[in-house]
Write a protein that binds this DNA or RNA. Structure first.
Lengths: 212, 212
DNA sequence: CTTTGTGAAAATGTTCACAGCC
DNA sequence: GGCTGTGAACATTTTCACAAAG
């Protein structure tokens, strides 16, 4: 298997989202052209992306929606159930705990962590808030592989320490700070910087209207 | 001016975030090497990125933190104040209204929109919730250029219609659906698909541990 | 006649290597 | 010595163009 572009993986996730919606709408078959229209890319790109993983299409017809979705799920390892923890039970962490898209995609929010005694022990959208001091133990007991970081940036040290000492494999990071874990094992980090999106947007807007 | 890679713009936003923090910590000067360490890239990449826009450094010394930050702000057009609306006053929309990082970066959340009569008229973190039916008028009156979409995917049609008819220039889209505006003018879209981040994470984790 | 799958070409983005400056 | 700025080399990613299949 050749080396797969990271951008391809990002698009595969997008295709999968789209296919699931089409399946709900009872669409049986889709061509690369249609799928490209739905996901704002080109038919060639769609076909090239799939070609990294095998041949799923029928010439002259297109792709079977259900079969293709299953195939993409296996590429993204979604078939396994994943357990997720959210660190930070503030506004953002609580909103993420309520976000319906995670469960729909096969990810289970098992627990929230916080350091505020007011919040510890309460439940948010059915998810218990646990003391961040119990992070390592809870993660092990509940078999959690992924953490979502949603603490204020002032609490980032406590968060880094808790994650470094735990068995967490990956972090989706909403804190606008570059995380640094003092550990030798590999922890994957995906940054989601909300303010950065706005920076990029204003750049696009200003450049878009003939600023050259 | 040459054609600037989009990836460079994304990194510039990251550099800026980092520089602002350094400035708060009273750091005066920084080298490309140090900045690269803070932002998880390479010194050559940092210098190359800046070279698209001019020469900001001092040979043998590095970059003046304050001056460089101002320069990057002007690249990203942050010096202008931008007004932002959030559509959807649910958990996610409310959390975004409270998110401190937007104001810190020069973006003002002026108003929230919703279609729920229960919510309309209330205030969330000092921001008023307005009827989505008044979208066009309110956007014009408050001089809003950017919308953040945070509605449940069932309400996406109402959202698309409101935005299409308004003077909004760009949308940060948290709804896990590909937006389609029925209008001829260009509306920039930046998708933030939260579930997609988890898909990518599980792919990285599984591939990471010797899946080849 | 339609649509897939894929090498080859083109375009885009990153790293190297070093000249020039402090 | 230490660091920036940048063409050139290299690597990656996308687009093209067309053979093969239903």
């Amino acid at each position: 298997m050749k080396n797969i572009p990271f951008a391809t993986i990002e698009r595969v996730a997008k295709y999968l989202r789209c296919l699931k919606r089409l399946d709900e709408k009872k669409v049986k078959v889709i061509s690369s052209k249609e799928l490209a229209e739905h996901t704002k890319t080109t038919p060639e790109q769609v076909r090239k992306d799939f070609s990294y993983f095998g041949r799923f299409g029928k010439t002259g017809t297109g792709y079977d929606v259900k079969k293709l979705a299953r195939k993409l799920e296996s590429i993204l390892k979604t078939q396994k159930k994943w357990n997720v923890a959210i660190i930070g039970a503030g506004a953002l962490g609580s909103a993420l705990a309520r976000y319906p898209g995670f469960k729909e995609s096969g990810y289970d929010i098992k627990v929230l962590f916080d350091n505020d005694p007011e919040k510890i022990g309460k439940k948010i959208s059915g998810v218990e808030v646990v003391d961040i001091k119990k992070f390592g133990d809870t993660v092990k007991k509940k078999n959690i592989q992924i953490a979502i970081a949603a603490v204020p940036k002032e609490s980032v040290n406590e968060l880094e320490e808790a994650i470094a000492k735990s068995s967490i494999r990956g972090v989706i990071n909403f804190v606008p700070v570059t995380l640094n874990f003092k550990t030798r094992r590999k922890i994957f980090i995906i940054d989601v910087d909300l303010a950065q999106k706005l920076y990029i947007m204003t750049y696009l807007i200003k450049r878009g209207k003939g600023m050259k």
